[in-house]
Design a protein around this nucleic acid. Structure first.
Length: 570
DNA sequence: GCCGTTTTCGGCCCGACTGTTTTCAGTCG
């Protein structure tokens, strides 16, 4: 049973308990445990009950339940809960404006058990007759149902960020705006986004709020207050805008950047010291001791400022207290891009066009890594075409002075772990990226062996998109990442962080694990169009920062000469 | 259900907005 599956069960338990009207702190305990498990970098199922109970937010009871789940594949407590008459109501919680109290009321009074029951009741105007509910509520429920149907999932960051930046630019240029920031999970560069948060400092919030709800992308206003408004855009995602005074900007930025877990921990810590933390500042009694900048806010709590990407309560608070926050890799540190495709296989642009965009990015090198023959649909390179492409690249390279196109390939790893082209050919290339594109559903052990075999092959430099996931489209294949990281370390191989926003693979928790083991990472865009080079690297770097990677952990921060030396060292 | 140089029991982060009420519960982040 995977960490994610276990976490999901505890979250489901929390939902059922919530509708049953259980103690809110008990509910929160299950949610916190689920979060710990989901973010755990190792295999939860490998831990003993004692080790489990040492994890934050997991005590005796949940440790024991986790063990039961891992060992028997079932949990009696959970099975019993699912039999509760209230269990089906969990579905209703997905609807905006419907919480546990309303779900219960709707069931107890109208027998509503599903979203379609709810829709029927709303259309028959039965909901408005319930105590504490009215016409507006009924209307909001119907809108909530249609919004849910339109957009169920969290959105990949690559889809949402550029759109939010357009809205942000509109607000930033208003004359009443003094300071502005995209906050929330977008600022933390989380791979998928639920909704967007924008923060503005201004002494005149009203005109900003008025402008916000009138932006052409807005189709529905969920709420509009003096300092806080929420809207839904035509693309179906929610944007929250918060306006504070400039004096509070740092405290508000901290608060609205989150994550929730990070904030809760900081507030809890502060409370013990008799300090109150809210979006307006850090308060000792009535006196505000910090608020204007984030640095000031952290400092007032005895902490060093830290990059937003780290704020997940993954140990960053402890580091900040010791003033040991690492200097994370930045976009400007990147000196080259190590995976991209040209018209030789399934790319849209010529090698020269790709190179030009590499130069425009300020890089010293790029690697052209077209596909290998197995992927017929991509017009993968045969042996003969590999040699031809090497020739072609040599010719093109003569045109450049301070820039180099590296010859390379993204070679397919076959089911048995062998590569799609012989080593005699592959060793002629500067860079060999080995990736899996077929047979995704092998059993975990077989997949792990397959990949390790590729990592043991001396011609391989980088393991491409190591888990094969496509956000919202394809789950990562089953593989023992701990073993892969070990094998990469043992064979001195690089793991790719594929920055294509649909992939972002490796993901943060594995990057953090790889970093701890001293495995190097290549941040690549896997561009199939020249424009992607410029657009996608920031997502890769964002994810790298979420994995706490520093410049030294990322091979393509090396200047060309050092990078070539790195490749040449066995 | 978890947790502890203030506690092994009694706490558990904090505030805005809405809708339906006339002072606040529910929802959300």
């Amino acid at each position: 049973m995977t960490n994610q599956q276990i976490a999901q069960i505890f979250n489901h338990i929390a939902d059922i308990l919530e509708i049953q009207g259980e103690n809110v702190f008990k509910i929160r305990a299950y949610q916190k445990a689920a979060e710990t498990i989901a973010n755990f970098t190792g295999d939860i199922s490998a831990l003993s009950e004692k080790e489990l109970a040492e994890l934050p937010g997991i005590g005796k009871a949940i440790a024991q339940k986790t063990k039961e789940l891992v060992e028997t594949g079932k949990l009696k407590y959970y099975e019993d809960l699912k039999k509760s008459e209230y269990a089906p109501l969990v579905e209703l919680l997905q609807i905006q404006s419907v919480g546990p109290k309303h779900a219960r009321l709707l069931y107890d009074r109208l027998g509503v058990k599903s979203i379609s029951d709810l829709e029927k009741a709303a259309k028959q105007e039965k909901i408005r007759k319930l105590a504490g509910m009215g016409e507006k509520t009924e209307e909001n429920i119907l809108k909530g149902i249609s919004a849910l149907r339109k957009h169920k999932e969290r959105i990949p960051i690559g889809e949402i960020l550029p759109r939010v930046e357009i809205i942000f630019a509109e607000l930033e240029k208003l004359k009443e705006t003094k300071q502005a920031l995209i906050a929330g999970s977008l600022r933390r560069f989380k791979e998928t986004i639920g909704d967007a948060d924008i923060l503005i400092a201004s002494e005149k919030p009203k005109p900003i709020m008025d402008a916000f709800v009138k932006i052409p992308q807005v189709t529905r206003v969920l709420s509009q207050g003096e300092t806080k408004s929420s809207v839904i855009t035509k693309d179906g995602f929610q944007v929250d805008l918060r306006v504070v005074e400039a004096e509070s900007f740092g405290a508000a930025a901290h608060y609205f950047t989150g994550s929730k877990a990070h904030n809760v921990k900081i507030r809890t810590m502060a409370v013990r010291k008799g300090i109150k933390v809210n979006e307006y500042g850090i308060f000792k009694g009535k006196r505000r001791i910090a608020s204007r900048t984030e640095e000031e806010v952290y400092k007032s709590l005895g902490m060093q400022w830290m990059p937003p990407e780290m704020r997940e309560d993954w140990g960053e608070i402890e580091l900040a207290l010791k003033h040991k926050i690492p200097a994370l890799v930045e976009l400007k540190d990147i000196k080259g891009d190590l995976q991209m495709h040209s018209t030789w296989s399934d790319g849209w642009n010529s090698i020269e066009e790709m190179a030009q965009d590499g130069i425009d990015c300020g890089y010293e090198y790029i690697a052209i890594t077209d596909h290998s023959p197995t992927l017929g649909i991509t017009r993968g390179l045969t042996e003969e075409r590999v040699y031809k492409q090497i020739e072609e690249i040599r010719k093109i390279n003569k045109k450049y002075k301070n820039f180099r196109i590296l010859t390379g390939i993204e070679v397919d790893v076959r089911e048995n772990g062998q590569l799609d082209l012989p080593n005699s050919v592959l060793k002629e290339l500067d860079i060999v990226v080995a990736s899996i594109h077929t047979k995704f559903n092998l059993p975990k052990e077989q997949m792990t062996t397959r990949i390790i075999k590729a990592l043991e092959n001396p011609v391989v430099d980088i393991l491409g998109h190591p888990t094969g996931r496509l956000l919202g489209k394809r789950e990562p294949f089953e593989v023992d990442m701990e073993k892969i990281i070990k094998a990469a370390k043992a064979n001195k191989k690089v793991l790719e962080l594929n920055g294509c926003p649909d992939r972002l693979d490796l993901t943060d928790i594995y990057l953090k694990q790889a970093r701890e083991k001293g495995v190097k990472i290549a941040i690549s865009t896997d561009s199939h169009k020249n424009l992607h080079l410029k657009e996608w690297m920031r997502y890769g770097v964002g994810m790298a920062r979420r994995g706490w990677l520093e410049k030294k952990d990322v091979v393509n921060t090396l200047p060309l000469d050092k990078f070539l030396k790195f490749l040449a060292t066995p």
